[in-house]
């Protein structure tokens, strides 16, 4: 294991920020850490970077215990929300900062060559003599990425690095960053509160809430088989019930008058509005019994405000812990309210 976090706990002023966090990452893996704001994900990242210290537990990088090392001694680089390019330095000088003032100082000629090489990779070599304020937000974030990666860190930490960019730029730069990290074989831990971004960036996803990892798994697993109602509410788009979960791919809409198939159950629902996306019509419906909203794809035409039935096969109901389909008798009893 390249990265191993064991029972990491942090409390501050008598309050637990996070507790007993375990995490393992292999080389070249990108892990998304997703959770609502204030769940402790940024503090967790800062503890790994050495900007904040844990109360107990340990962090290993390449089997070396770095739990008590200072930030500048760790083989870990953190990218902040803001690019934080040093305004008094040019782009090239910014990128070579870590090579000049870090632990392993390299020769001037080598620094410049490596700086220009990495700027070439982030497609900004032409701007090497400019100052940060002459660059756009996206360009600045790319320089910040180059400045971090020139140090060949064992682990790159990203703390919502795209949140300061405007939406259209954000989606283009994040796919660019993902491709870049994959191409360079960088191991990265990526923090975000955006579900879509987490799914897009991460090979695996860790869902964090109230200071603990609720679930760690591939985006598909977490999306389709959430381990707890919290994960389901935060990460999935299905229907969350006490004890059960309905994945959105098992939901269908039909007009209220239709007949009921033997193996199918239905909720009464109201169409709130529809949107057209990717060539399909998606209906936002409100499920009265659960007081929840859900988005369902349908080929039928429905009107806004129309009463509909939201159907699912009994077999597709799943529990949180074991993630297998529920036996029929139990589910119908539970839902017969």
């Amino acid at each position: 294991m390249l990265i191993k976090v064991e029972k990491l706990t942090k409390s501050y002023a008598g309050q637990t920020v996070f507790s007993d966090l375990n995490l393992e990452m292999t080389k070249g893996e990108i892990m998304s850490l997703v959770g609502p704001s204030g769940c402790g994900k940024t503090t967790f990242l800062r503890c790994i970077a050495g900007l904040s210290f844990s109360t107990s537990g340990s962090i290993y990088v390449n089997d070396v215990n770095i739990t008590n090392s200072k930030a500048d001694e760790r083989p870990v680089v953190l990218m902040f929300q803001q690019p934080l390019l040093f305004p008094h330095l040019t782009i090239l000088e910014n990128v070579t900062y870590g090579l000049k003032y870090g632990k392993n100082k390299s020769k001037k000629q080598e620094r410049i060559e490596r700086g220009l090489a990495i700027l070439e990779k982030v497609e900004l070599a032409a701007l090497s003599g400019r100052y940060p304020n002459q660059l756009s937000g996206g360009q600045q974030q790319r320089v910040a990425l180059a400045r971090a990666l020139i140090l060949n860190p064992d682990l790159l930490l990203l703390d919502e690095p795209f949140s300061s960019l405007d939406p259209s730029l954000r989606s283009s730069i994040r796919s660019w960053v993902r491709d870049f990290l994959k191409k360079e074989g960088v191991t990265a831990l990526f923090v975000t509160h955006d579900r879509e971004e987490a799914m897009m960036m991460g090979d695996r996803i860790a869902v964090m809430k109230e200071g603990i990892f609720q679930q760690i798994g591939s985006p598909k697993d977490v999306y389709q088989q959430p381990k707890s109602p919290q994960v389901a509410e935060m990460f999935s788009e299905g229907l969350v019930m006490e004890g059960f979960f309905l994945s959105p791919d098992h939901l269908t809409l039909r007009p209220k008058t239709s007949l009921k198939a033997a193996d199918t159950e239905a909720f009464d629902a109201t169409v709130e509005y529809k949107i057209l996306k990717y060539g399909h019509t998606f209906y936002h419906v409100y499920v009265h019994a659960l007081e929840q909203r859900v988005v369902v794809l349908s080929n039928h035409e429905f009107l806004d405000g129309e009463q509909v039935e939201l159907c699912y096969k009994r077999i597709s109901l799943q529990t949180y812990n074991k993630n297998h389909p529920v036996d029929e008798g139990k589910s119908s009893k539970k839902l017969s309210r």
């Binding site: 970077a49 500048d72 870990v76 934080l84 900062y97 870090g102 392993n104 971090a148």
Partner: peptide
């Protein structure tokens, strides 16, 4: 604080960060 932290994660010790980042800023 971020400026100092940024210098630190890039591997510069606090003295170096002071002279190369804080003083210019």
């Amino acid at each position: 604080n971020e400026w100092e932290e940024q210098g630190a994660v890039l591997g510069a010790n606090s003295q170096t960060v002071f002279w190369t980042v804080m003083v210019p800023l």
